[in-house]
Design a protein around this nucleic acid. Structure first.
Lengths: 342, 342
DNA sequence: CTCAGTAGCTTTACCGGTTCATGAGTGGCT
DNA sequence: AGCCACTCATGAACCGGTAAAGCTACTGAG
């Protein structure tokens, strides 16, 4: 594709500095074997010629690459809206930047497509490893990618990630906290608007929700499973609010759907938090912009991304890595939750 | 970094298929010189061994790479919130996927850092070209990167992009449409909440706003320049609504700030659209989730990203590319705009 | 029957780095 | 003086592909 006009190589730098290319390589890699004086001459020549080592040649020779992969499988329209991913990516980047590595990003349409992509990436030695996200139950990526030997870290509960070292947030505990908080406020009819049924963490949260409700002796109101988009959140909310014996509190699986829920409540003249309490998952700025502001289960997504990336580097380095949770999301109460009226 | 356990190379495939590695290369690159039978044997062997050509070796030999770069210089927290970028990226990806290329993404803290990054990327031959975004007036990247000879496409009005081929939306026309629309509804006091003063398109929009207002003989109400975050949008809105002779309509520079503005109006008991009309720029799903829904200047961000990428490929291919606008954002009226009351 | 042309494959020379065995020069120690 | 150790530098081999030239056996025309 690219055909640069003038190509400076290590040979040119070596010639300019009056040394062999081996010496230039040693100098640029901070290895012993060149005197300070020579080293300085080499750097001067390189700077003058605007040379930097060709990364392909270096990778080939070193048998290593400094890129890691991330494939995200969600409809694009949705991705833009969910603050989660960009924040997560920025966390990844913060660690990559320290090590002068790069992120190869790809949006894919299905898990099968992702599997094929990861296979190519790995076989072609384009990446040193991958971060795998959005695990489903019986995730079809697990088998092929484990067999492939791809160094990877999974984002998700170990029960989902099929043997890949994983980093996760303890959603079950957080869900329980959310439900108990609402119950403590006096809510008896609590509903939940969850993510897609197949998605692993939705399942975990759904289970935790049911169990906590049961433990509290509360109405095991059927919770709606939907997508992650705001429109779906709106629809689910409308349906909940129209039901006989409607809930006095709703827990959402992301912040976007909660915002949508707030819109629906306003549209239907249901006052928040007087008649209805709303609680979001993932606490982005969005939650502070609405009126009323949204109570949320908050966690440090940036730090999450960073942590995952650090673990990936351990995996790549061949260390034996144990799966571990990061900090559990914690409740940030704002104006959208209150005791039910009456 | 990565040190795969078992490494299959073209040699192994050649041996397994009983041919030379040259033949394997020919087969895999769809070149003449191998019979159908041999080609089949080669593919069978490759599939069996799970081989794919090493991308470093290929790049080195071909003197080309199939990766393009994108560096984004905005605070991470903000990036997550603005649907624009993910949508833009998904547009880029749609074109890259067709050509089996990849996107190298990096979030940077300053334009200087971006300049250095692009220089490394290009000198190290990591990328075939770059997409440059968020141009400032007198953008410091232009000089060094032009000198570098980096193949790049700029996103922004040609007056800003200093000689780089560019793709842009005609914001001036769109701003004029927005203002004239509000004026036609009967608004006389129209305010604007813009992005950061240094950012090129903010400047263009600000100028167009003033000119259109003047042309309509309307109050050239000072418009607020701020950041892009919702909090800043909220602050700006509060300040506007508290001013004596407060505006009856506000135009925002993105959708997030408009959402924040809506929250502030609710908080202050100002009814939208009765007492105040709000108009957003960039029309994501967010605008349809609020109550009332937000009128917006809408454009096809996904298509924008795709178009930019196509142009970049032309640039990389050495074609003479002319800067060209994509479709002008157009007004989508929703519930947040109406004639001013009384 | 000879010879040009060609399909099909092999050989070989790169691409631009890294690495390692080798060697030249210097100084210290016995 | 002889030997060793050490520093600084070189040259060649190698990484895993691609590309162009070279070789061989077969085909068909004259």
């Amino acid at each position: 594709m690219s055909t640069p006009t003038e190509r400076v190589t290590i040979k040119d730098v070596a010639a300019a500095a009056g040394v062999s290319k081996g010496a230039v390589s040693l100098a640029f890699n901070d290895k012993p074997g060149v005197s300070e004086a020579t080293r300085a001459r080499i750097f001067a020549a390189a700077r003058q010629l605007g040379w930097a080592p060709n990364s392909s040649a270096r990778s080939l020779s070193r048998q290593s690459v400094d890129t890691i992969g991330l494939a995200i499988c969600r409809p694009a329209r949705l991705l833009g809206l969910e603050p989660f991913y960009m924040e997560f990516i920025s966390g990844i980047e913060s660690v990559l930047a320290e090590r002068n590595c790069s992120l190869l990003l790809r949006l894919v349409g299905s898990l099968e497509e992702e599997t094929r992509l990861q296979q190519s990436w790995w076989r072609e030695r384009q990446i040193a490893g991958s971060i795998l996200v959005d695990f489903h139950q019986e995730d079809p990526r697990v088998g092929p990618l484990r067999e492939l030997g791809l160094p990877a870290v999974a984002v998700g509960h170990p029960t989902l990630t099929g043997g890949f070292p994983s980093v996760w947030t303890d959603d079950a505990v957080a869900v329980a906290e959310a439900v108990r908080y609402l119950a403590a406020l006096g809510h008896r009819r609590i509903a939940r608007v969850g993510g897609p049924a197949g998605l692993g963490h939705s399942v975990i949260r759904a289970k935790a929700f049911e169990e906590t409700m049961a433990a509290l002796g509360l109405d095991g109101r059927p919770h709606v499973e939907t997508g992650f988009s705001g429109e779906e959140g709106a629809r689910a909310t409308r349906s909940l609010l129209l039901s006989a014996d409607r809930p006095t509190a709703i827990v959402y699986d992301n912040d976007l759907m909660a915002v949508a829920g707030l819109g629906v409540a306003a549209e239907m003249g249901v006052s928040v938090p007087d008649e209805l309490s709303l609680l979001a998952w993932d606490d982005s700025q969005l939650c502070r912009l609405t009126h009323p502001t949204l109570s949320a289960m908050s966690h440090d997504v940036h730090g999450f991304g960073a942590q995952v990336t650090r673990v990936l580097f351990d995996v790549i380095a061949g260390q034996d890595v144990v799966s571990r949770p990061v900090a559990t999301p914690s409740l940030v109460p704002r104006a959208s939750t209150a005791p039910p009226r009456g």
